[in-house]
Amino acid sequence: MGLKEFVEKSFKKSPWVLHYNCSSCNGCDIEILACMTPLYDMERFGMVNVGNPKHADILVVTGTVNHKNKEVLKNIYDQMPEPKVVVAVGVCAATGGIFREAYNVLGGIDKVIPVDVYVPGCPAKPEAIIDGLYKAAEILKEKYEKMGKAEEVLK
C-alpha cells in the first residue's frame, strides 16, 4: 500500500470528532460523552474525540446559537480543514427547541454554519448520536471523493 492509499484509507475509516457546546443545557453533551464510554463505545467505528479543531473531521454541535457564541462557532468551523462535516445534536441545535422564544437565542446552528446531519431528541439518545455520526462518516467519505475529482479537473 502506497502512502496515498494509506492516508486515504485511514481518513475514511477513522474520522476524528470535535465537540462544541454552543449554549446547550448539558443534556446532549453528557450523552455525547456517554457515547465514548464502555457501554456505547464510539471508538469501534474509529471515531476519536479530539480537542483541536485543526485535527478534526466531524464537528458535533449541541445547543442553540446566541449572540456571543456565534462567532466562536464560526471560528471553530473555519479552523477545521476541508473536507468537514457538521452534526447538529438535539432539537436545540436543529431549531432552537424549547429555548427558541428566549431573547438571546438566534435559533438552530444552521443560521451560522452549514449542517449535514441533524440528530433529533431532547436530549438525543446515545444510539441516535452514534447513528448520526455514522451517517456523517459516510458524507465525509463522499465529500473526500468529490474533492479528489475536483483536484483532477484542476490539473
Binding site: 454552543c22 449554549s23 448539558n26 453533551d29 453528557i30 446566541n66 457564541n69 424549547i98 422564544e101 428566549a102
Partner: peptide
C-alpha cells in the same frame, strides 16, 4: 461569561406556570 446565556428567566412572561416547569428542567441537564 455569556457563551451559554439564553435568557430563560424572561420566558416566564411567555409561558404559563405549568409550562415553565419544562423550561426550568432544561436549565441544566445534569
Amino acid at each position: 461569561f455569556g457563551f451559554v446565556h439564553r435568557g430563560l428567566e424572561m420566558l416566564v412572561q411567555k409561558k404559563d406556570f405549568n409550562q415553565m416547569v419544562y423550561v426550568v428542567d432544561h436549565i441544566c441537564g445534569i
